[in-house]
Design a protein around this nucleic acid. Sequence first.
DNA 1: ATTGATAATTCAAATGATTTGAGTTAATCC
DNA 2: GGATTAACTCAAATCATTTGAATTATCAAT
Lengths: 386, 386
Amino acid sequence: MAIQPLQQGSNAERSRHRNRKAVLGQVRAAGTMGRAEIARALALTTQTVSNIIAELSEDGMLLEKGRLSAGRGLPAIQYGLNPEGGYALGIEVRPDAVFAALLDLQGQAVVTERVALDDNTPAAVLGLTQAIYGRMLAQVPAATNRMLGVGIVMPGPFGVTGIAGMGTDLTGWQEVDAAALFEDALDLPVVLSNDANAAAMAERISGVGQGIASFAYLYFGAGLGLGLVHGGQLVRGAFGNAGEIGHIPVNGAKLEDGLSRLSVQRHMAAAGKDARDIDALEALFQSGDADLMAWLSGACETLGHAMTIVENMFDPQTVILGGAMPDVILDYLVQNTALPVVSVSNKADLPHDRLVRGASGRMTATLGAAALILNNALSTPLAQAH
Amino acid sequence: MAIQPLQQGSNAERSRHRNRKAVLGQVRAAGTMGRAEIARALALTTQTVSNIIAELSEDGMLLEKGRLSAGRGLPAIQYGLNPEGGYALGIEVRPDAVFAALLDLQGQAVVTERVALDDNTPAAVLGLTQAIYGRMLAQVPAATNRMLGVGIVMPGPFGVTGIAGMGTDLTGWQEVDAAALFEDALDLPVVLSNDANAAAMAERISGVGQGIASFAYLYFGAGLGLGLVHGGQLVRGAFGNAGEIGHIPVNGAKLEDGLSRLSVQRHMAAAGKDARDIDALEALFQSGDADLMAWLSGACETLGHAMTIVENMFDPQTVILGGAMPDVILDYLVQNTALPVVSVSNKADLPHDRLVRGASGRMTATLGAAALILNNALSTPLAQAH
DNA sequence: ATTGATAATTCAAATGATTTGAGTTAATCC
DNA sequence: GGATTAACTCAAATCATTTGAATTATCAAT
């Protein structure tokens, strides 16, 4: 989380490292590719790509996928990711539970676990996490020597700020260096993030955000969060707390007062209905519950405000909506929200819809935690614009 | 402006290029540095830095600045930027004028010009720009072979969007590729940007933003703009229109309705007073004009809203306020705005003030245009966080 | 069916930039 | 004054990429 040295020099070894990642990223994005094709995309020579591919195949990260004849010339041998070539662990620490997922290099969840927590102190969580990790490796022995790292999602904001977030619900975590603790406990490289950022990465790696370099992700957590991806990388802000959109006031109320899990729950509770569970919410929606529909109408309006802010601040290619809500409700919101007219995104011939539903479902943030690691393994910081 | 290839591979030549920039950036940030010191900062060997410094000295970009004895050992030869080692041209195209500035490598304005325009079509502006450039080179012949590029600032937003901006005031520019036109006319590498982004870069290169990797710049243009710097680079959004904060509605009105040049002008005009000129505004302020003070009181409140949005969306190290306003008014706003309590930036022990006044004065955007070029010459895209 | 054009791939040598290791210089510390 | 420390230089080694020539396999045209 600390701010890194602003610049780092380059040498042969670091170039190679970078180029390996670039090749993997390119192949992943395209599904399969030939050497020459990759070389053109990366502005490298075929020979270089050949060397790197030999190395990556040796390491088990790439697989031959036959030859593809495209016009004249020798048909190119196609290469694709070997899903079993690398694994990333995602851990989501909630106040009352720990979710975990093991993703393969392709971004597929191989094993997932959800464990309830009655003690969320660091010692307890770390012990539980170790146990989960052990069980997962036992189920997927191939992963043992191929772990790329672990992504940890914890409720933000990080550090003591003016926002009393869920952070207060995790006892004993405020003062500790969580990343260091997990690194010690699991002996893996660690990336720490909040839920919205992780969710955005989940979409980038295996959802709607694939191939989109700049997008924003509006996340239904307890509150309303925002993950920002620019040039293929997360924009985290100086202290890792960028995207706390829920606390922005519009017309006297905070955005998340009208658009969040807590918001529906309160609204429905006031009508004497229980909407704490996702399935309960879905059932209410399916039955056309009048109270829920009333809430949705307000939520659409609030979402419109949020869109205005996000689009005008970031000018993203698209905004993805997801998180702890049933898909049907997310779809309803996407379809019934009037997109802002006064917006830099309001223009003709857009290649993407301005607002779309996320694809990664209920465990988005957990998957995203692992996706943070995959993204590191498959992409290099963006080349400079000229 | 187009989205660049997402990844580019690296090779020896590109590494050298990158390392040269990194050395220059490091030296610039520190004022003067020794070889070994630079090497440590960039994770390179002294030998490499030695080679690069020899090359940069040869090229006239670095100068020896004596030896510095720091404790034991051989005192390190200090190197500093040679201000005359490189120049960047900044051009600001306004509907009724063209401003230009020639900056040296150190970021100092060597020559500036302001020319009124009665014809702002591409042909006229390009011709005028060529003439200005010619006059500047005549005044600073040393710059002739040392031009790094030209930054162009034009009113955004770019492309046809839902925002009817000043863009419409420039006739004939909507459909053309402005960057290509300027590149042809001046035979220099071109960077195109809006005023707020450029202003942010001006602060980063020679103002309050020096050494700050992540900050936001609230810019008084005709409306209210925002420049975002993250990891030392501009966040421009997918289509170059990030930061159009002025159009975000708060309590029914747009932010720029209460916080912009147009806003004061209208407010004062309603009171029968002329505030179109910066000096007129300053005089009104100095005389404690009641109407102006009333506007300021509202502006402070609006600025508070803007701060809430910016801080919670970006979590910057600081927010810089500047643009077409007299310094005394900017200072007043900085000092009298109640900083938002509900904000991720509201925390103890901040290394920077949350809101500060910009340092680059009235020609900020013009200087910033050139600063965009300098920033390219002096920094590499940020290394990856781990 | 043969021939020529095209394009992917490989091999071996060259190139470019960084690193390595030994040696020199000039300060401070004791 | 000698030991220690640190910056700097030189020459050789190393690493990864590039270059250029040769090979292979397909398509297209005769």
